[in-house]
């Protein structure tokens, strides 16, 4: 099955914010969200899992405001947290689509919003899959120096968005050189240099605007699966420890040699694990 992104491109305006998403597959809803780095977008984040998971779920791959094909002019309303704002927005998208409940798959930066959604709208969520995330990704690290080595390359790209700096950032994204194709770098660079994206991402990407979901996580009723790569240079695997201490209904799966992109680096195991978790 070859997937043409264009076939499933959709747009919806929710609370004045135009969202782009891809709608693929049939079955219970599974909304997927990408990370916060330059060039991140829903389709590139999850496209390696779509062929398999779309056989079982109606997948909604949603670009966050400022990213991919979504609104570049959106701003965070005064006094709102990023996670609270995004949770409300995505509930609005569900209402717009007439969907009662959905599973969530949240990568990296979108993790706290996934937890927030489960806390604020427990009647709208099935299960929660988190990847390389939990508490705000801007939190100081416990067991190694802050900022993380990979985050430094991300910051350097933001300062000067050249192809070379994107290449270097991708080196710290995916440890295994055999999995780092030129195509991946090209696509990410193209997405990162979409007009207005870097400025819009900066407006939402500040962890200062994130609520402290850790304080409330004990109240999360949602069954949660947390996935991580041991060799993650962006959001180091120590983040597992916070989640273990705080999320009540949790299981964790860590792949030793994987980096910040386990859904691609171990896509077959990832797909099977996620499918089993969501269907039992």
């Amino acid at each position: 099955m070859t997937l043409d992104k264009a076939d499933s491109d959709r747009y919806a305006t929710i609370d004045g914010v135009e969202l782009h998403y891809n709608d693929v597959g049939a079955g219970p809803a599974l909304m997927t969200f990408h990370g916060g780095g330059p060039g991140a977008n829903a389709w590139d984040n999850t496209r390696f899992n779509v062929p398999e998971l779309s056989k079982h779920f109606r997948m909604l791959l949603v670009d966050l405001p400022g990213y991919g094909g979504s609104d570049k002019s959106a701003t965070l309303p005064e006094g709102k947290t990023v996670d609270g704002f995004l949770a409300r927005l995505m509930r609005g998208l569900l209402d717009h689509l007439g969907i009662e409940t959905t599973h969530l798959y949240c990568s990296s930066f979108s993790g706290p919003f996934g937890v927030r959604f489960g806390l604020d709208y427990p009647e709208r969520i099935g299960k929660l899959v988190l990847q390389a995330t939990y508490a705000s990704t801007g939190m100081p690290l416990m067991l190694s120096p802050t900022p993380a080595e990979g985050i430094k390359t991300l910051m350097e790209f933001r300062e000067e968005p050249t192809y070379e700096r994107m290449q270097r950032m991708m080196d710290y994204f995916i440890p295994n050189p055999a999995l780092r194709s030129k195509e991946l770098v090209d696509r990410r660079f193209a997405a990162a240099t979409i007009s207005g994206h870097l400025e819009a991402a900066a407006r939402f990407g500040g962890s200062a605007n994130m609520s402290n979901v850790q304080r409330e996580a004990a109240n999360l009723k949602t069954e949660t699966l947390l996935l991580w790569g041991g060799q993650d240079w962006m959001v180091p695997v120590e983040g597992v420890l916070r989640a273990m201490g705080e999320i009540p209904n949790l299981r964790v799966h860590i792949w030793r040699g994987a980096g910040h992109f386990v859904q691609y680096e171990h896509r077959d195991e990832f797909n099977r694990l996620v499918l089993d978790f969501l269907t039992h």
Partner: peptide
């Protein structure tokens, strides 16, 4: 996990 070349780790919480 770190010692074994082809390892993955599954932790049961709760």
């Amino acid at each position: 996990m770190w010692e074994m070349p082809n390892a993955r780790l599954h932790l049961f919480g709760a």
